[in-house]
Nucleic acid binder design. Structure first.
Lengths: 140, 140
DNA sequence: GCTAAATGCTCTAGCGACTAGAGGATCAAG
DNA sequence: CTTGATCCTCTAGTCGCTAGAGCATTTAGC
């Protein structure tokens, strides 16, 4: 394996240099080997791990969830169940966010649909914001 | 108007005490009057304003957007157009978030639906995360 | 071989919207 | 008069980075 600089790793993975250092700091990446002049030196293993991390982040997994997934993927003989339940938890989380946003959306849309009147004094948006009773749902 | 303590305002609005102080700090609320012993002293005006703020926050408006809305609502003779466009911008923002989350959702669901195999070594979740090519969409 | 630009290093601070806690003053009820 | 609730300010932490200062080192062109 030949050595790769942090900049080259950044180019290869699309993860920015400071972000790579940050991932090291928070324990998503092991402390990198250093050259004689103290620069971080990587190999293909790190590039693969970073691609994994980036992909999981793109899918919205938290850094903490990714740490757990990495720990699990380092123990290939364990049951897949734990990995699966992390992913399912994340799915439930996404569902909740979508549901919440959809409820908000209808509320805000209703607000703007009631129309812009001439003056701020008659503005439905301001009025609705000031009076929770004007809302469809108790809980947004 | 009689004086209301910060705790009473918190109870009346559902906004926590430290959050009220924070809103003052960032300029959503004017600096409160103080009693002889330096405690914040409010009246009904603040309670109404805080309800407005809280409602807007519940609907996902940013503190910055709320600051603009408050400024506008203090000028009742202006056109309602600016208020309306803030709300419409927010609506577009919500739509974008929903679209993004929906795309993520399908990706993550597909991942967990491919099933938990016996060992982590065969786990589809780990595999998909490690290989972006296994995804439906180029951009999540 | 020399110089200048690029890249690397560490450290600190900032984003948004709070939340938590320390350490101290004051108030209200029994 | 004491006790507990409430209030004050200040600092630091949350999450996942991003930006910048102020250096050292490497690389490319000449």
């Amino acid at each position: 394996m030949r050595a790769i600089s942090i900049g080259a790793v950044a180019k290869a993975t699309g993860v920015k240099v400071p972000t790579i250092r940050y991932y090291e700091e928070v324990g998503l990446l092991p402390a990198a080997d250093r050259t004689a002049s103290n620069r971080r030196s990587y190999d293909e293993t790190t590039v693969r791990r970073l691609r994994f991390i980036r992909h999981a982040r793109d899918l919205g997994f938290s850094v903490d969830a990714i740490r757990q997934l990495i720990d699990l993927s380092d123990q290939p003989d364990r049951s897949c169940g734990d990995v699966d339940s992390i992913a399912r938890l994340h799915l439930a989380d996404i569902d909740e966010k979508i549901a919440r946003l959809t409820a908000l959306r209808s509320e805000v849309e209703r607000m703007v649909d009631e129309g812009a009147h001439g003056r701020v004094a008659d503005c439905r948006v301001i009025e609705v914001l000031g009076d929770h009773a004007a809302c469809l749902h108790e809980t947004h």
